[in-house]
Computed example of a mutant assay.
Amino acid sequence: MTQPAYLRIADDLRQQIVDGRLGPGDRVPSRHQLARDHGVSDRVAVEAVRLLVSEGYVESRSGSGTYVRQRPTVRRLTRSWYREARGRADSPFRADMETQGRAGTWRSSSETSTATPAVAERLGVAEGDPVMRTQYTFLADEQPVMLSTSWEPLALTRGTPVMLPESGPYAGAGVVARMRAIEQTVTLASEVVTARAILADEADVLGEPMGSIVMVIQRTYSGDHPVETADIIVPVDRYELAYVIPVD
């Protein structure tokens, strides 16, 4: 099946950006030049450039042209089984920011909700069972860098000091430490990593262009049964994941 012309042009420009032949700040050929080079109409060339704008590869400047977008510095997030095993009270995000010399903080809001089919399966509860749903915006040096939504079964936490993850005597502690406070021992952290296009509300909070790709880390903490599950949203142009796994 033959690709539409605008997709072929966009792919050629995208490859030049990925290869470094077009670097950050470089001007992309005008629509007239693209049309001449590829033997297409100006309208087709415009569609190709619009696609790259939506994907975050280039940006248009009024009265000037289109330029390769300056990409953020890619930083590392460490998913460490050693760190989880130590059960430090601090959050993994704050620990990662410390290693980068940045101040890691977050904003959060919690509300009671009910388990969707997907959340129910991950928590080992029934669909519709009550859960505490907490949404996080994580900040590095006061700038939003990633998002997360977590769910905890209220059958486990209701009426305890840890029912609200960010309030009370254990506010801000990691899941392992919080669950230990109600005699729940976490022995396993499992993660499934997928990728998808960013959603509009995520793009607005993170300052990412529509069309950007985000990683989704589906993390679940378990002991005798799951105690928390979360979707962590990470822009791929800002972070890479590094897994540290013990070998016996």
Rank of each mutant, 00 (worst) to 15 (best):
Q3C: 07
P4Q: 00
A5C: 07
L7W: 07
R8N: 09
A10G: 09
D12V: 12
D12G: 12
D12Q: 11
R14F: 10
V18E: 09
V18L: 11
L22Q: 04
G25W: 04
R27N: 03
V28Y: 01
R31K: 09
R31D: 04
A35W: 03
R36Q: 14
D37V: 13
H38D: 05
R43F: 13
E47S: 13
V49M: 07
R50M: 14
L51T: 09
S54Y: 06
S54C: 06
G56W: 05
E59M: 11
S62L: 14
S64K: 06
S64C: 04
T66I: 05
Y67G: 03
T73W: 03
V74H: 04
S80M: 13
E84I: 09
E84C: 10
A89N: 12
A89W: 13
D90C: 09
M97Q: 15
M97K: 09
T99D: 14
Q100K: 09
G101K: 00
R107H: 02
S108W: 05
S109T: 13
S110P: 06
S110L: 04
E121P: 08
G124W: 01
A126R: 11
P130V: 10
V131R: 01
R133M: 12
T134L: 12
Q135I: 14
Y136S: 01
Y136M: 02
T137D: 02
T137M: 08
T137A: 11
F138D: 01
A140N: 10
D141T: 06
Q143G: 00
P144A: 08
P144G: 09
P144C: 12
V145Q: 03
L147G: 06
L147P: 03
S148G: 00
W151S: 03
P153F: 05
G159P: 10
M163C: 15
L164E: 15
P165A: 07
P165R: 03
E166F: 10
G168D: 14
A171Q: 08
G174K: 01
R178N: 12
R178M: 15
M179E: 02
R180Y: 03
I182E: 02
I182A: 04
E183C: 08
Q184V: 10
Q184W: 06
V186S: 02
V186L: 03
V186M: 02
V186P: 05
L188R: 08
L188M: 05
E191S: 08
E191K: 02
T194Y: 09
R196E: 15
A197R: 14
A200Y: 14
A200T: 15
A203H: 05
D204P: 03
M210D: 12
G211E: 09
S212R: 00
I213L: 14
I217N: 15
I217A: 15
Y221G: 00
V227G: 07
V227H: 02
I232V: 15
R238D: 06
L241P: 06
Y243N: 00
Y243T: 04
I245N: 08
I245Y: 13
P246K: 08
